[in-house]
Structure formats: structure tokens, C-alpha cells
């Protein structure tokens, strides 16, 4: 079991309110990702759930019981830290066994659980090494191993992949997702990388300046961003946001259109016309950064890999009207 409920939970450091009071429910077995730009309060929120920080107000319930005042160890949660936080003076085996040793579990059971975790995480050959002798990915797995042996009510991940290189990150992403499929345990995962959020989450919580901007499934957020912030944050490359007469034509203050929803037209019927600035040919896709009259920022367009246009070429564009998002002056979505 691992249902976590936050009621009116807030956090201030002195006079600075980092997280204004908020409500959030994390269902049992769910993979929830907190995502937002750095400094948005996502890690603080995770630490409040972990019990590493006191809440300034509100209540945290874990499986129905009030956990607000409990010390971290008694909340039944396990955490994987950004720096892995492995104990450098202990072998992998001792690292993984540490929480069990602290809980006073008997040695045989400790060994059994460590062996099982090591098997699952492919660490069996490394059990007697020190963390310093392992690669980044292996250290990450040890940190996860230390978390899973406790059989916690929920796992908390604090930007666990940000110290890995790009290739490893993709691999570990899959491993964590697989782990979730197998264990079916609640996972709360903090990241600033919206790709991680999109690929792993059952439910994404977008945070900005301590406030929850939107909660929903990845495709919900992609298809129906509730405001300009979410629209700009989710999706890569970023959604193009256009204000001025073009927006007014659609009856909005701001309109947004994703790069993949603008087509390069082959005939001369232009809706938008511009000049190619930078073109990035990836083979499979081509990204164009297009300069248009009356716009400071270039418009990003994603086209097929076979479009042969280069810097300085004139380009004709057709936005897909069905995929234009409209927002009012306050940035809220207009249905």
C-alpha cells in the first residue's frame, strides 16, 4: 500500500514562502512525476513527504495515517538521492543491507533480501566492491537496491538520473519504469527533464514557483495544457507561442502551436511565410527555425527528413488549425 495525501501542505523558510499551501493525492501504485524548472519547489515538496523537512502547515497522510510529525525513518518510505548518497566506506553489500541492519533484521533474512535485490539489479558480481569502484549507472542501481530491500510503501526519487550521461540516462529510465511495472509500488519522482516526465509518469504534476500548474496524464498535459506555462514546458522542441494580430485572428491573447503541427507546404498557398534561419537535419526529422516578419523569436517547425531547405530559403507554412491552443490575457486556456 502507498497512498499519499497532502492537505493544505505549505513550506516557508523564514518569511519566504517556497510552497504555498497545496493539495495533492498520490494513489497507491501510481508513478507520479513532479516536474518544473529549477527552483520551482519540486525537491522541497519531495523532502516534505520524506520528512527531511518540517512542513510549515497542513497535513501529510500516508495510507490514511497522519505522518506529518513522524521522523523520516518511520514513514515507511525509501528515497533515492540525486548524488546517490552511497556510504563510501561500506561495500555494496553493506550499503544495501544498511536499512535492514538499522531495523534490526536477522542476518539470514538480510542476506536473502540483499541477494534478491542484487539479482534483480544485476549487481551480484559487484557486492563486495566499494561505491568508488563502480560506474555511475552501477552506483545508481545500488542506491535503488538500498531502497527496494526495505519494501517501502513508496519510493521517492530526487532527480536520480541527472548525474548520468545521456546514453545511460535512457537505459536507467527504462530500468526504473520496468521496476515499477514489476513492483507496482507507488513512486514519486522529481525531475526537471520533461522527457523523463512524459515517458515514465502515470501522472505528472507540473510545478512553478511552488504552485501546482496542472496535474494529469502525460498525454493530457500535451494535448490540453491548462495554461501558457504548461504549454511551454511540456513538449520538445517547445510549443511556439504567438501573440499579436495572428492571435487576435483566432480570438485569443496568445495562441500556441507545436512544431509538429505546422506543415511545410509544397505549393504556393502560404498561410505563414518566412525565411529559414537555422536548419537542423537529423535524417529522420528536420527542425527549421524560421524568421517571420513582425516576430522577434524564430518559429520552430518540425518537418520530415526529406525536406531539402536551407539557410536563406523562403518557406511556406500551413498550421494545423485543429491543433492551435488558445489562451487569454492571464494565460488560461480558452476552450
Amino acid at each position: 500500500m502507498g497512498r499519499i495525501t497532502l492537505n493544505n501542505v505549505g513550506k516557508s523558510f523564514g518569511a519566504v514562502e517556497v510552497i504555498p499551501p497545496l493539495d495533492l493525492t498520490i494513489e497507491d501504485g501510481e508513478f507520479v512525476v513532479f516536474v518544473g524548472p529549477s527552483g520551482c519547489g519540486k525537491s522541497t515538496l519531495l523532502r516534505l513527504i520524506a520528512g527531511l523537512e518540517d512542513v510549515s502547515g497542513g497535513q501529510i497522510r500516508i495510507d490514511g495515517a497522519d505522518a506529518t510529525g513522524l521522523p523520516p525513518a518511520r514513514r515507511g518510505l525509501a528515497m533515492v538521492f540525486q548524488s546517490y548518497a552511497l556510504y563510501p566506506h561500506m561495500s555494496v553489500r553493506k550499503n544495501i543491507a544498511f536499512p535492514l541492519r538499522m531495523a534490526g533484521m536477522d542476518k539470514a533474512e538480510q542476506d536473502r533480501r540483499v541477494a534478491e535485490a542484487a539479482r534483480v539489479l544485476n549487481l551480484t558480481d559487484y557486492l563486495d566492491r566499494r561505491p568508488g569502484q563502480l560506474s555511475g549507472g552501477q552506483r545508481q542501481r545500488v542506491a535503488i537496491g538500498r531502497a527496494i530491500v526495505r519494501e517501502p510503501a513508496a519510493f521517492l526519487f530526487d532527480e536520480p538520473l541527472s548525474n548520468l550521461d545521456a546514453a545511460l540516462r535512457v537505459g536507467m529510465r527504462l530500468e526504473i519504469s520496468e521496476l515499477h511495472e514489476r513492483l507496482k509500488t507507488t513512486m514519486v519522482y522529481v525531475t526537471h527533464d520533461q522527457v523523463e516526465a512524459m515517458t515514465m509518469a502515470d501522472k505528472i504534476v507540473v510545478l512553478n514557483a511552488g504552485r501546482i500548474e496542472q496535474v494529469g496524464s502525460p498525454l493530457d498535459l500535451y494535448r490540453r495544457p491548462r495554461n501558457v506555462f504548461v504549454a511551454g514546458f511540456i513538449g520538445s522542441p517547445r510549443m511556439n507561442l504567438i501573440t499579436g494580430p495572428e492571435a487576435a485572428r483566432h480570438g485569443a491573447h496568445t495562441i500556441g502551436i507545436r512544431p509538429e503541427h505546422i506543415r511545410v507546404s509544397d505549393d504556393e498557398t502560404c498561410i505563414w511565410k518566412g525565411e529559414v534561419g537555422v536548419s537542423e537535419h537529423l535524417g529522420s526529422d528536420t527542425y527549421f527555425h524560421i524568421h517571420m516578419a513582425g516576430r522577434d523569436e524564430p518559429l520552430t517547425v518540425r518537418a520530415g527528413g526529406d525536406v531539402d531547405l536551407y539557410h536563406g530559403d523562403t518557406i511556406c507554412l500551413k498550421p494545423d488549425e485543429a491543433h492551435i491552443h488558445r489562451f487569454d490575457e492571464k494565460g488560461h486556456r480558452i476552450e
Binding site: 527531511l52 525513518a73 538521492f81 548524488s83 548518497a85 556510504y87 538500498r146
Partner: peptide
């Protein structure tokens, strides 16, 4: 600090934290 926090999450008391994690390190 994360390492001491990890110890705390793992159920170490203050005494155990200082004795098993801080002092050896």
C-alpha cells in the same frame, strides 16, 4: 548532507548516524 539524510531515511538514529556513517567517513 545527502548521505546523512540517506542514513536517516534508512532508519538510523542520531547516535547510529554519527557512529556508523559520519565518523568513518
Amino acid at each position: 548532507g545527502e548521505i546523512l539524510e540517506a542514513a536517516r531515511m534508512d532508519g538510523a538514529s542520531l547516535r547510529e548516524e554519527v557512529l556508523y556513517v559520519l565518523t568513518p567517513m
